[in-house]
Design a protein around this nucleic acid. Structure first.
Length: 325
RNA sequence: GGGUCGGUAGCUCAGUCGGUAGAGCAUCGGACUGAAAAUCCGAGUGUCGACAGUUCAAUUCUGUCCUGACCCA
């Protein structure tokens, strides 16, 4: 995953960064705020859904009060119907972080989207921007002829990619097609050349581990809070603004199930049940992702003192320009 | 009280014209390079309601009982 170059480059030349990446509902938001306050830092969001405006409750975005306490970056950067993705995120996050580094401001990256964190820390292949027409063309092919057909097509054009992608995984099959059409190169070639070797940061990786039963009850509490805070009203508001259910953002966890309720496809209780269940499944996927990363140091939720010590040690001796903490 | 249709994996259900069973979801594990809160892959799971009868063999046929839904009284 991580390239050798990444490890052997001179660390002192790199921007130091604390990255808190953990499953949902483990308390990373409050940990990040606590640390940022102590060290006088800013928080850079690494959550793929909190970048959308008007989606506050269902994404568990930091509250206005929390955002007053600590400056957050990359929240509310696009409307729900705008294109957003890992490459855009990496580009914007790197720009923000460069600015903060120039001010000597400690940076805390916090979020649960593993791909976004990876793209930020290690880069992502460079390809032309997504062309909706091309994407829709292949989606159409898939819908009319099936996934196997699409994979067969990829096999004739890019056998290397076809061999690596499961025929049922049409999202990745389509992506490989796009890359080939737009760049003329196989996505596999681009990936091999890239190899996540673009590493401008010296990252201190922190994770929070919560035992499964506790996490389940935290998820239930989180869902309940969202409902109390007005998740239903938020979704109604989004629909009224014209953000329809087929948008990527509206298919995300919580929003999809509430839209289904509003459309009368299931009861409210069923919607809540599904949100809980799918949030749990999501958190397990996050655990799979993050636990594969051996650079992460794991802490229990009540160990914020130890995290603080770890961060302190990490920052000591780093160059922060004029405002060393 | 009579009738009809059910009782099979944690859940919803399919199936076996008699040779001890399967799908989806859940569970567990995994992948992830411009959709990632997305998308996909792999694995396990059962005294087939109870008891008896017929049979070489019953979850499957027969009987009784228990139990659920509905209909008629």
């Amino acid at each position: 995953m991580k390239s050798k170059e990444c490890l052997k480059e001179n660390k002192t030349a790199k921007i130091p960064l604390v990255v808190i990446g953990a499953p949902t509902a483990t308390g990373k938001t409050s940990l990040a705020i606590e640390l940022a306050e102590i060290f006088g830092g800013h928080i850079v969001n690494a959550d793929s859904m909190q970048v959308y405006r008007y989606m506050d409750i269902g994404t568990a975005k930091p509250s206005p009060e929390e955002r007053r306490r600590v400056t957050h970056h990359l929240l509310d950067v696009v409307n729900p119907d705008e294109e957003y993705n890992a490459a855009l995120y990496a580009e914007q996050a790197r720009t923000v972080i460069s600015g903060l580094a120039r001010e000597g401001r400690p940076v805390f990256v916090a979020g649960g989207t593993g791909l976004y964190i990876r793209a930020l820390l290690h880069g992502i292949i460079e390809t032309p921007p997504v062309d909706e027409n091309i994407r829709n063309y292949y989606k159409g092919l898939r819908d009319r002829h099936g996934r196997e057909y699409l994979h067969g097509l990829l096999k004739t054009r890019d056998p290397l990619a076809a061999a690596r992608i499961n025929p049922n995984d049409s999202v990745r099959v389509i992506r490989a097609m796009e890359v080939l059409d737009q760049s003329g190169r196989s996505i596999v070639d681009l990936q091999q050349d890239h190899a996540f070797a673009d590493c401008p940061y010296d990252a201190c990786r922190v994770g929070i581990r919560v035992d499964r039963e506790t996490l389940k009850s935290r998820i239930a509490a989180r869902t309940e809070r969202m409902v109390e805070d007005g998740l239903l009203e938020e979704v109604h508001g989004l629909l009224e603004r014209g953000y329809g259910e087929n948008l990527k953002a509206m298919q995300s966890l919580g929003y999809r199930q509430v839209v289904e309720f509003i459309r009368g496809r299931h009861s409210w209780d069923r919607a809540v049940e599904l949100i809980n269940r799918e949030t749990w499944l999501y958190s397990k996927r996050q655990m799979t992702w993050f636990s594969a990363d051996k650079t992460i140091q794991w802490f229990d939720p009540d160990e914020s003192g130890n995290v603080r010590k770890t961060v302190q040690e990490f920052f000591s001796g780093k160059h922060f320009g004029k405002n060393d903490p």
